[in-house]
Design a protein around this nucleic acid. Structure first.
Lengths: 343, 343
DNA sequence: GCATGGCGGGAGAGCGCTCTCCAACGCTCT
DNA sequence: AGAGCGTTGGAGAGCGCTCTCCCGCCATGC
């Protein structure tokens, strides 16, 4: 098999110079339409494919971006961080949104995980090597050091969700408090009077906002005390939290659960304790993830447009990559209530 | 901010030539230990990071590999292929295994999807551009044209699962028939006499093998007729298939379901029809995916070491990338029975 | 003593591309 | 008709790295 053809080969075949072929390929400046046609034909004939490395070398752009999942998992060889990540349908939606946006632009994300200091260092080095022009980052942890590291290395990056500490970095997020209020309003409208909630880990801003937003909204309805058990967004933690909540408050007739996966875990617990959903206990989730439709009954939940948000995150990143002085921006999306059978 | 330092800068700082620095970095040939030390220090001082594009240009290696998910989804703008993929926990396990193997080697997979002819062409072009040295491929479809395209373009690639048609390409797979036999033996040992099965799509070899392996094993136990309903590996299809199987064979006391996700869908259907699991109907799944533990009751299932297989797939690929004349190999893993509560 | 050979290091040629210059050309305007 | 200008194509200098030569040095052998 012959070495793959270069610009030079195409130029020779078309009877023009390398520069002209390059101009045709990159659509830069005016090139005589006749010559353009000749060149295109020569490209087709030779089966020419531009060499990305050579191009990157001179443009100092790779045209690649990294999709980083960051945060701390429970360190265990049996169940490494990256495998836990895929267990959460939320991540799949983010990835899907990112891919949906990038793919039509011919770019494909590099999948990276950063759950330890070592992994973070690897990520930074990798980006600095010029393997990618920037990164979109979804963090499962509150005090994630990675955003700071990225900013310090002046690497273009965009976060999913507001960072716990103020950092000059762009992000997309959802109005968590508004979402929680929708849940509260719905439960009250359904006549629920003894409601509790299962929150996410309370060191992450999103969890805090969902909890406080829910409590504030319930307070406005005249229910100042809302019992809460903290979970950690996994199915198992939802199960455990529901168990506890029910033990402490057997009279419960409604629950707002801070994500669908925990709600999916909670439903069988309620059933096991003889509670019918939604008749005895109404359940409202959050995310409208695949867990919502996979649950039985399907979950009434707060939808936030994760895919759109992820796409926007990718769009923002490309803007930053394109213009390094692009001002830092944050874009907040509005959630909505999706009514299914659980409430 | 100054441009990032180059080899030249490091060489100057260390008072040696570019070549020597390169030798130190790549650990090639003998370099005087004293000089090595000086060079390392110079690297640290300058904060030098090698430029991958420049290196790729000359080595004709990128050090990147693609993780391709291929197959045909139901085409719909609402629910694009890539989002469906993430809904299947199986994919997450493959990705996790690949990442687990590659990450310690400093390489990170590029995530790509290839569900249409256009996407496949994009994938091939992308690889030919030298964006990645090769690809590991997990296909959700039987007659996937991509393996053939990869082989024709002489791009190193390794498949997860044997291709439907014989193609000179390396792959890893599991002994599906052995797994199905384990399920059959277990159901019979549990005293089940009227068993049925829900198969995967029958155009994929894995589904065929699981079905025929199950039937053969049951026949050996003296049950020559085993009713079967075909699903397509999704939760919803498992639900529908269970519904049909139960309607046609109400006396059923055991089911072998060709993957856990369908089994997860089937369980609520059984419950809804008043069947207790495992007392009235025993259920055995396949995969030991996260769906197995997420189901209630947790599924007795056939475990195949997907992560190990994925890691092996990555290892094979690196071997092929390293030596293009590496002979085509296939590696078959043995499944095992995991007993939980459903059978 | 001189040829031999191994070893450590430098010089320099590219890898394939982009992009800045510059030359050539045809047009308008004086 | 010649100056001035915009347009189009070519020449060539790198981008940062690897790797093949090659050279100088010292230990060794006759």
């Amino acid at each position: 098999m012959p070495a793959s053809p270069t610009l030079e080969d195409v130029a020779r075949a078309a009877g023009v110079s390398r520069a002209t072929v390059s101009r045709v390929i990159n659509g830069i400046r005016n090139v005589d339409p006749m010559i353009q046609e000749t060149v295109r034909q020569a490209i087709a004939e030779t089966g020419y494919v531009p060499n990305r490395a050579a191009r990157s070398l001179v443009t100092r752009r790779t045209g690649a971006i990294a999709l980083i999942v960051s945060g701390a998992g429970e360190e265990s060889g049996e169940n490494p961080f990256h495998s836990q990540v895929f267990a959460d349908p939320f991540f799949g939606r983010v990835a899907s949104g990112v891919v949906g946006f990038l793919r039509p632009r011919g770019i494909h994300p590099i999948l990276m995980f950063a759950e330890t200091a070592e992994a973070r260092a690897q990520v930074i080095a990798y980006l600095r090597q010029g393997n990618a022009d920037g990164a979109v980052l979804v963090s499962t942890q509150a005090q994630d050091p990675l955003p700071r590291l990225l900013v310090d290395a002046s690497l273009p990056a965009v976060l999913f969700a507001r960072p716990a500490e103020p950092i000059p970095i762009s992000y997309v997020d959802v109005a968590h408090r508004t979402g929680a209020k929708l849940a509260a309003d719905h439960l009250v409208a359904r006549g629920r009077r003894r409601v509790g909630t299962i929150s996410g880990p309370l060191d992450v801003p999103a969890s805090q906002d969902r909890l406080s937003g829910f409590r504030d909204a319930m307070a406005a309805h005249g229910y100042p005390y809302i019992p809460c058990v903290e979970g950690n967004f996994t199915l198992n933690s939802g199960e455990a939290a529901m168990e506890r909540l029910l033990a402490e408050h057997p009279g419960l007739d409604g629950v707002f659960i801070a994500n669908d996966l925990m709600a999916q875990g909670a439903l069988p617990v309620l059933r096991h304790h003889g509670r019918r959903v939604p008749d005895d206990v109404a359940v409202v989730g959050f995310d409208d993830s695949s867990a919502a439709t996979a649950s039985r009954p399907p979950l009434t939940t707060i939808r936030h447009p994760v895919e759109d948000m992820a796409a926007e995150m990718a769009r923002l990143l490309l803007a930053h990559v394109d213009d390094l002085d692009q001002p830092v921006t944050s874009i907040i999306f509005e959630p909505s209530l999706v009514i299914r059978d659980s409430a």
